[in-house]
């Protein structure tokens, strides 16, 4: 693996940049979570608060940087990248879709039922 040494120029600068980016995103998340702007809470998009959508998008944004930069996914071959990323994303989306739909259905059943659960 001697060729490795020749190939890798130092990218410490880039690493620190990514760290600052991840920190800023986390700080934004925490600030939003503490002040909870009324506008973002009252507006819903596809039956979820806008604030929660922002949190999820920012999380995926962070996950992208961790995988691409820290785990060197950008340096891997297209085949390896797709084998890992596409597989995981497809299966996770599928699982989430099924479970959340089912959870919402159970909630409706509880609510519409003749039994009271709050006693």
């Amino acid at each position: 693996m001697a060729h490795d040494i020749a190939h890798h120029e130092s990218n410490t600068g880039k690493i620190w940049k990514v760290f600052i980016l991840l920190s800023v995103v986390t700080i934004v998340e925490v600030i939003l979570g503490i002040i909870k702007p009324t506008f973002l809470i009252e507006t819903t998009f596809i039956s979820m608060k806008l604030l929660n959508w922002i949190f999820i998008i920012l999380t995926i944004y962070k996950a992208y940087y961790i995988t691409w930069s820290f785990m060197h996914m950008e340096g891997e071959t297209k085949g390896l990248r797709r084998a890992v990323v596409w597989t995981a994303i497809f299966l996770i989306c599928y699982l989430i879709f099924i479970l959340l739909t089912e959870g919402d259905y159970v909630f409706e059943v509880f609510k519409a039922g003749h039994k009271s659960w709050d006693f």
Binding site: I92, L95, L100, E102, F107
Partner: peptide, 10 residues
């Protein structure tokens, strides 16, 4: 996802 399921349920 199971956490999400339970949360949607309640």
């Amino acid at each position: 996802a199971a956490y999400g399921f339970s949360r949607f349920k309640f």
